[in-house]
Design a protein around this nucleic acid. Structure first.
Lengths: 208, 208
DNA sequence: ACTACTCGATACCGAACGGTATCGAACCTG
DNA sequence: CAGGTTCGATACCGTTCGGTATCGAGTAGT
């Protein structure tokens, strides 16, 4: 099974190679852009050569698709986890959610940039549009359900359905991330949370 | 290309050529992406060849920069014009503004896509970052001032400063446009207007 | 230990692109 | 009409990149 230890050179597992390539792709693509980075660049950043990429992913598009899959699922998990604790009052929960999403955006810095580019590619490519929209709907549905569970019975404004609230939440998160990309200082850390609390807790008076 | 009334072949003005190239660039870049479209493609779409582009803009980046300038100013004019009429009540004005911005996004369809790509480029390029941030601040300042003028004395929530309201407005517009890009049906036309009215007119009760 | 197989490394190809040098026709000027 | 200038058309170059065919070291089965 393994000729590990001292002396013998071990060949990395296929999974190890895959993971290393994906991680390198995320870094390099985010920094240089997907079109701006060559397959050689990505492979080299992972300590391999082109051959490894084509052996594992078939094409550059295959690598991009795999990266999209990995990242989107990560995003969904993060989002759901952020709204997991159903203990505190609603407005406070909204504020916590905003802070959490903001923190995610900030710690992953250039991931936003890559996310935008993946979005563009998906919209532009004829085949990818369908798959992307399916993923998008899944995420939307998950967020909507979470919204329903959290706001059930609470005094949220009737002007916004849970469905629309989910859309608003996603749009706001992405929009603020975009804004922060252009000018990090222009977007306070707690802005998202305050806006969410404002929209959600409309029935309650503001407590300074 | 065109024959004049007197029978002689007329050469188009330099300004005509410039305008035609910019218009073609907006179309072609939006559809194929900036990196995805060659200088030949753009020139051909305008009825010219590469030579015209390099004679007028010096480089592909020069063309992109000129296009950015033209489009951003258009955007600002549209936005300011949308909030121009200061007659109607505030909430109603907010709703009208939302509808107007939404309409702009919809009629220019793939402009959003191009806008995103320009944004990316600006953030990524070392020199462009500064110029882009300057433009961004100008736009933000203009929007902030408009917000101050419109909400002066009205009962807007103290949780959001005019500055933050401007950021929120821009982020929301872009975020919803992004969302609509992925799934046009998921974003109702009047959502932006309703949310704005909700945030702005927090003091007033909702009128169905 | 021999053999068959896996899979990344290497060398290479054809195409596409940005950019440039040059050419020639359309326009000024006198 | 003549000479000069502008400016887009054309041909061409160097480079880069995605993709492929092939090779060879490491691995597993017997």
């Amino acid at each position: 099974m393994e000729t590990n230890g001292s002396g013998a050179r071990r060949r990395p597992t296929r999974e190890e190679v895959r993971a290393a390539l994906l991680e390198a792709a995320a870094r390099v693509f985010a920094r240089q852009g997907i079109d701006g980075a060559s397959v050689d660049d990505v492979a080299a950043a992972a300590g391999f050569t082109k051959g490894a990429v084509y052996s594992n992913f078939g094409s550059k598009d295959g690598l991009v698709a795999a990266l999209l899959d990995a990242k989107v699922s990560t995003y969904l998990v993060q989002g759901l986890d952020a709204v997991a604790d159903t203990e505190r009052p609603l407005a406070e929960r909204a504020r916590a959610l905003g802070d959490r999403l903001t923190a995610v955006d900030q710690e992953q810095e250039d991931w936003t940039l890559l996310f935008l580019e993946l979005w563009q590619r998906a919209v532009r490519s004829p085949g990818g549009q369908e798959a992307f929209r399916r993923r998008r709907r899944e995420l939307h549905a998950a967020v909507t359900q979470a919204v329903v569970e959290h706001t059930d019975g609470a005094g949220i404004p009737a002007t916004l359905s849970p469905d629309e609230l989910a859309t608003l939440l996603m749009a706001l998160t992405n929009g603020l991330a975009l804004e922060r990309l252009g000018d990090p200082a222009a977007v306070p850390d707690d802005l998202l949370g305050r806006v969410l609390a404002l929209v959600i807790g409309r029935a309650e008076p503001p407590r300074p």
